[in-house]
Amino acid sequence: MRNRRDRIDMILSVLEAIQSGGGRAKPTHVLYKANLSHKLMKRYIKELKDRGFVVEEDDKSIMLTDDGKKFLSELRKMKRFMESFGL
């Protein structure tokens, strides 16, 4: 069975950490909730920002966009698919 966290798991944990704060979260909250290293979190946040799934606000908090919400929903489906196939 699958034990290691892969990219989908990590991106999902970042997006879920933001969503758990009502769609907006401070980087420290994301870091704590997503259980990632600072380096990895920065990398994923940058990638999500580049793809328009999150935006950084003036007070440095990160906000989930509408596309980000849709992407989060897709990732959840993918995770269920992966888990049921034991991938």
Binding site: D6, R7, M78, L87
Partner: peptide, 15 residues
């Protein structure tokens, strides 16, 4: 394949 494009995991590619 959609899964592979996001995850980059070879296991998903072969699946």
């Amino acid at each position: 394949y959609e899964l592979y494009k996001i995850s980059g995991n070879k296991k998903h590619k072969y699946f």
